[in-house]
Nucleic acid binder design. Structure first.
Lengths: 330, 330
DNA sequence: CTGTTAGCGCGTTCAT
DNA sequence: ATGAACGCGCTAACAG
């Protein structure tokens, strides 16, 4: 392994000068700099990242803490992050919190111990985790979900408006008893989307009926059970708006089991795109999020924050798109 | 930040002793060890991983280099790796080579520079990348695809037998002109699965017709185009076996566009499970791989290799399962 | 069994 | 503008 000293000796300068050249400090004479660069390539020198990390008390790593790697929403997002990070010389650590605040907490501890340069997180329901992360980390960008208690840069999507559009569309198609399966009460995406649903009902002069609302867990099983409960409870829904992709899948499964047709007698719109929404029969209407863009944007915010730690926080809200397909069209 | 010296002073011992206690070297007197542990917790000491990394010339990181983060096959696998790695104190870096050997090469360089402890890789078609990785890295486990030129621990699935079962099933359902859409000629999964297809035809006394075979790229678009080409070429397939999930999706899209019914007039079986194969209509027959298990097993092999670098290489082949659903049953 | 000593390779003072 | 010297925090070799 060739070190900075080998290069220095070979170029006839000091190690300090080599370091300066290699880090682009422009206070070095051009001829010397040339000699250093020549020596470096000749010896096949590449810097020891571990030594640099220790010296700077910082890695060139980013962490992305998400709640489910198997959810295509997150993988596409991770890819956006990775493309930007890679470009800027960062590697991306993937942390899968599994919607479990304890697992999240343990990842946060690990991230702090590793002296990760920047963190992108879709926070779980426990605000003190976030507080600890923000406290101990130099750069944090929140994605997907808002956390009231802690201020950070953030990239969100317009959940309320998306949910409203979805619900309004169901109303406009003539559905009258529209149910909503939403996520945990403490997760902002669940409440925003529920708010949008409620707003659409209000706009149409409908009453908001809590019998038609279920709080679930953003998972497939949860969606399945919520749908079953809606059907069994006497609420008699003729349409359902599910506030994430996995719960939509669960709801579809229940409807299929019960032999209920889609879009008649029951219409369905989901939040989040499914990867092969066109292949599902009937094809599935969804509120699509710009997932890759969310990742890219978050990564760009992270880069900015690392360059300029004292700037004011930025919150970017990206729009959703309503994709009307067969499951809600009658 | 409290260091090992602070703890040493507080416990009235030397820094070396503290280090020994914290790393479980059992040559320390129990009373001293107790004092050290007490001092450590009292001071809220946590070791500086960056310093340890430099000293040991090794990180506590694993890298997983895969060809497509958006493919559910890989995300489930990554999760298996992560669950094991996390347990053993490793964090997992996700590297997305995108089926692009250049991207793969650049990740390999990065991995070597970072002094990553262990690497799990689904290799692209360029063997010298693998050679370089194995040369410079202390522990490498190959997954999914074989590489002839380089020997490593490996976790594979029984591709040939899986493909054979799928094809035999189509034959048994009475399909007579069974096409195969497979992957790149240089990727072992593509050739093994093609071999299984061929074997099943031979077993049934059918002739192998190259007009019914297409080499594609394991992607959705590739599958779509290959299917279109099969239909347009005059090969008149009445069934198709596609050798990965994304190409299966592509093939289904083409069939839908052309208004061709499934399973009649065209039967379909895919390799790899689709996340919501049951929701696709008609539901999709597949050869399922134990993806999570592949990840777990690879991670366990990696742990073993790190503990015992000089053992002989292990190659584990896991079985597949044929899930017969509606797309191939007539 | 424990303490002393000596780096790991780098970036950054502080002199010159 | 350049070099000498120092230390980031830890672990491993050696000595006792």
């Amino acid at each position: 392994m060739t070190t900075i000293h080998d290069v220095a000796r070979h170029a006839g300068v000091s190690a300090a000068t080599v370091s300066r050249v290699l880090n682009g400090h422009r206070t070095v004479d051009e001829t010397l700099a040339g000699r250093v660069r020549a020596a470096a390539t000749e010896l096949g020198y590449s810097p020891n990242i571990l030594a640099r990390n220790l010296r700077k008390s910082q890695t060139n790593l980013w962490a992305v803490i998400i709640s489910d790697v198997n959810n295509p929403f997150f993988t596409s997002l991770v890819r956006g992050v990775e493309d930007v990070g890679q470009q800027a010389g960062y590697s991306v650590l993937l942390c899968n919190s599994d919607e479990n605040p304890d697992k999240e907490a343990s990842y946060i501890t690990a991230v702090l111990a590793q002296q990760i340069a920047g963190v992108i997180i879709s926070p779980s329901s426990r605000p003190d985790n976030m507080a600890q992360l923000v406290e101990g980390s130099r750069a944090v960008v929140t994605i997907d979900r808002e956390v009231q208690e802690v201020e950070t840069d953030a990239v969100l999507v317009d959940n309320e408006r998306g949910a409203q559009a979805a619900t309004a569309h169901l109303i406009e198609q003539g559905y009258s008893r529209i149910a909503c399966i939403t996520g945990p009460r403490k997760v902002s995406t669940a409440t925003s989307r529920l708010r949008g649903y409620r707003q659409a009902l209000r706009d149409a002069g409908r009453t908001f009926d809590t019998n038609l609302v279920r709080y679930s867990d953003f998972r497939e099983t949860g969606g399945r059970e919520a749908m079953a409960d809606l059907l069994d409870s006497g609420a008699r829904p003729d349409a359902v708006f599910a506030t994430n992709n996995l719960m939509t899948v669960g709801a579809l499964e229940t409807l299929a089991e019960r032999g209920l047709g889609i879009p008649d007698p029951v219409g369905v719109v989901g939040f989040d795109e499914l990867p092969w929404a066109e292949l599902v029969r009937p094809s599935l209407s969804t509120v699509a999020q710009p997932t890759y863009e969310v990742g890219r944007t978050a990564a760009q915010l992270l880069l900015k924050r690392l360059e300029n730690p004292d700037e004011r926080f930025t919150v970017i809200t990206l729009p959703t798109t309503l994709n009307i397909r067969d499951s809600s069209r009658r």
